[in-house]
Design a protein around this nucleic acid. Sequence first.
RNA 1: GGUCCCAUAGCUCAACUGGAUAGAGCAACUGCCUUCUAAGCAGUAGGUUCCAGGUUCGAGUCCUGGUGGGAUCACCA
Length: 598
Amino acid sequence: MNIEKQLIEGIQAAFQQHYQHQLSEDEISLQPTRKDFTGSHTFVTFPFARITRQSPPQTAETIGNYLRENAEIVKDFNVVKGFLNIELSDVVWVNTLKSILQDYQSDKLYGFQPDNGQQVMIEFSSPNTNKPLHLGHLRNNFLGYAMSQILAANGYTVRKVNIVNDRGIHICKSMLAYQKFGNVETPESAGIKGDHLVGKYYVEFDKHYKAEISELVEQGMGEEQAKKEAPLIKEAQQMLKQWEQGDAETVALWKKMNGWVYEGFDATYQKIGVSFDQIYYESDTYVLGKDIVEEGLEKGVFYRKDDGSVWIDLSDEGLDEKLVLRADGTSVYMTQDLGTAELRYQDWSFNRLVYVVGNEQNYHFKVLFSILKKLGRPYANGLYHLSYGMVDLPTGKMKSREGTVVDADDLIDEVISEARKKTEALGKIDELTENQAEELFQMLGLGAIKYFLLKVDPKKRMLFNPEESVQLQGDTAPFIQYTHARISAILQKAKLENTDNQLFESIGTIETSEQEVVELLTAFPQKIQLAGSEYSPSVISQYVFDLAKAYNRFYTEVPIFAEEAKEKVAFRVGLSFAVAQTIRTGLGLLGIQAPEQM
RNA sequence: GGUCCCAUAGCUCAACUGGAUAGAGCAACUGCCUUCUAAGCAGUAGGUUCCAGGUUCGAGUCCUGGUGGGAUCACCA
């Protein structure tokens, strides 16, 4: 059934017959034929010159002839240098499309792997509760969500988790500023979303803090010392202590303000379509990990310094010495992460744990994974850091303290309103009710921003261009969504004319543009696998874009209903159906919806 | 300074993991709406893949050395 397999078998047979040589399956690699040449699969013969004792073109010629004679699926071939370009017979394309359609018409989703019995936990989002989400969080959230979908499509059982950083000095800063300058303001009374209100006081703190520092510096204090001596920071530190001691008033304020933030976050998560199966809070987990430190000391993995602090020496792996417990017995970031990993494994015995965290923490995760390996944790080899690059602005780097961040809520509102503006300008919403229109704007706007952030390889640092992110033409989600809407209209018409359920058999020659579309359709399962193994949703976005482009070309070049041969009409309707489904599922993997009409 | 990452068209990104003449989108220019949605399609122009060596049938991709940019090397998280 599988085309590649048949070709490989044919090539093996050819080597046997002509060169008396047994080639193993994985010695043979086929690649897609370049657009400028005829054919769909290419076999490169250069590496086999030693075996065949012929020049590469001669070898290609020999193999090509053998295949044309003996392999049913091969119609013709051509040779360019050592490249053997294989042209498949038309019936292969017809049958291929039929089998894809069968998948779509059964319960099985085309391109998805069956359950592999493996469990993967994926952590993403991980916000701080002292300020609202920004552009960087969006890349994180979209990546995490898309990867959870892609891993599920690869047969994993996926559990999405979020760890909320809800404690620490930065939270106390917001709290303190609110206490001092807040005038008992609430989100309701101020008419501001809860997370934004708390963020406002975080900025407020920084403003006053800076003023105090410069005052101290003016009085002749050094800057470093002034940062430590400013009354506000001391008060914040005092507050953190009170919180840790469980002081009732401090805890009450903390609960109230965090409550506001969660309401705000929930609204944002809901809007961007992101959800979690479980949420961890650092206020619960920050004390974890100390028993692991004990265990590590017993096993001799860690060692204690004279002052009582506990360390691990990783210099044999090219890493440094790393602190895992302070001299006063309190935990550090690493301690917590050790404890949290352990807790998660107890909660749900995963085969893999994926952390979606920015690449500025590459070193931290290297160390974390290395420690867990040394401790002999059963899950240590299943840990993966999905490290992604920073999002830059045309003006430079985002810095929250300097107010150069792009706020997530603002950005989302902007892309949606941009979608509304452009759709109205095109006059395409006359037939829609108000609700339908609103739903469409959301699909387009959110689609645009998600696609924009997901189309770049996660590992790479990327530039965020506000104008390009709201574009609806070219390499964008709306372009792909538009293709889906177009096909929906065709399928609707096919239903009305009752041409959608006709069978097609051999239909004669198929057009190049048709063949290209079928070829792309066959690649979908491999793309899902690649996106999963590379942890890269951009594989999917790239693919769906290519598919939409190929379909649009077919759409303008080849008539569907004007075609007289009924078999051909049915084939083309079937082709359209398969593309629509694939676009829909592909976009779905990215968390993007596909409208029926736009 | 040590370690890690990055450098491809004017701009933003690809390149199936070593294959053919390095591809898309945006911006610029030229065409195509009486035919299934022009948010589309076709075309023109745009490249010393940062530099210098090396490995081999073959290098944007691998190795060495540079140059430029970024991250990290906290008893912060």
